[in-house]
Write a protein that binds this DNA or RNA. Structure first.
Lengths: 226, 226
DNA sequence: AACTGTGAAGTTTTTCACAGCC
DNA sequence: GGCTGTGAAAAACTTCACAGTT
């Protein structure tokens, strides 16, 4: 049923599947049992066709004339993304951002757990009476191999990020979520996703200012003085 | 010189301009004065054509046969993004993530400053001998108007995010960086960019597992037993 | 010779529009 | 009648290929 030759699937679609899943879980927990592509699309600011097309890459999950059963679809999407069982991920760099992520509560609902943390040296940090063991980066390969960890978050300063990425690749890591403001060089089979706040804010600045420019243009075309 | 009718510009291009800028600043500080589209593209894993095309939406910045002057291009790109002067942004929600962002050092280089923080109630937090004033969300509009803040980061729990977004919109905020796992409803003239780690990690999980599936498929087609 | 700038071609992604099913 | 699933059309974006400049 679930086909997954990813070569024909727009990479944006995968992100949207995760979005649909998030929303469907919520709907399901609110005891909404059935939903149409129109309804969910409206909730998520995508088009209904987009929603249906995205699902169609993986199979047929709805009933014509009826819609989609939320509970079933949750299961199907979890299976598509392979998030139907817990994924343990590692984090490297336990500075402010890293430790914020380490203590973030929101991962649990998504079957994600930051099970292992690394920094330059071993230590133990405490939060709300809970203790977190921080491992030395020199033990990365050993620990990651033993725990079969496939995904790692990089939260180190920019001048160390590539070095960490190299270690991760060498340790068999399959995907990296990179918070450092650099473009990591990794082999093709390793996926990198960047979460860079400065770049993102700068994009917003462009658009925020753009709308100002548009307004000015509009006012001028209406013959108004500034 | 700098034209900017954003309707013809791929929105991805803006993110890349911010990326180019980041890299060019670094190169410039390393006293690299000239660079070709080939060189910079290789550094950033984009194609040289992509780089040239992205710039071409805004003007002509290079010299044929020579390349680009880093210092000049930095200035040009800063002007395109309007990040040539300081942008003060607000943050709402000073939990773990919010306070990590509040103390993040990396914004300065990008002319971004989180100048104002909000939470449910007024308070003062301390870090490294520095004191940060946290304002009550009820004062959001007043303060944001007075300080002419146009951009805000939303770091509140998901059940409050829409409420905060409504306040932001009402206060004249032009763009929102949203860390909550919900799709915000805002008028068309307000730009929202989402930084949602769970969804991003789930995307990585899909790809991480995909490559496994591919490997298995490959092994099987080579006639090997598992 | 080296490198940019850019129409045109190609590719990817989204939207349309409608057949098919409940 | 209402809603899905999906080829086909349209739009968006990227890459090609080459003319133009230093």
């Amino acid at each position: 049923m679930v086909s997954s030759d990813s070569s024909y699937i727009p990479s944006e679609a995968i992100g949207r599947i995760a979005l649909y899943l998030q929303s469907l879980k919520r709907l399901s927990s609110e005891n909404i049992n059935t939903i149409s592509s129109n309804q969910i699309a409206n909730l998520l600011n995508v088009s209904p066709e987009q929603f249906r097309k995205d699902l169609s890459y993986f199979g047929e999950f709805g009933k014509r004339g009826v819609g989609y059963e939320t509970k079933t679809l949750v299961k199907e999407l979890e299976s598509i993304l392979s998030v139907d069982s817990l994924w343990e991920v590692a984090i490297v760099g336990v500075g402010r951002l890293g430790s914020a992520l380490l203590h973030y509560q929101g991962f649990t609902d998504s079957n994600i757990k930051i099970s292992t943390a690394f920094d330059l040296t071993e230590s133990v940090i405490e939060n709300d009476g809970k203790y977190f063991e921080i491992n030395a980066i020199s033990d990365f390969k050993k620990i990651v191999k033993r725990k079969h960890i496939k995904i790692c978050l990089i939260c180190v300063p920019e001048n160390m990020a590539q070095e960490v990425a190299d270690i991760a690749v060498d340790s068999g890591i399959k995907a990296i979520l990179n918070f450092a403001p650099v473009v990591l060089k990794v082999p093709e089979h390793v996926h990198v996703s960047n979460m860079e706040m400065c770049r993102e804010i700068q994009r917003l600045i462009f658009y925020a200012n753009q709308s100002k420019a548009k307004n000015i243009k509009q006012l001028m075309s209406e013959g108004k003085d500034l």
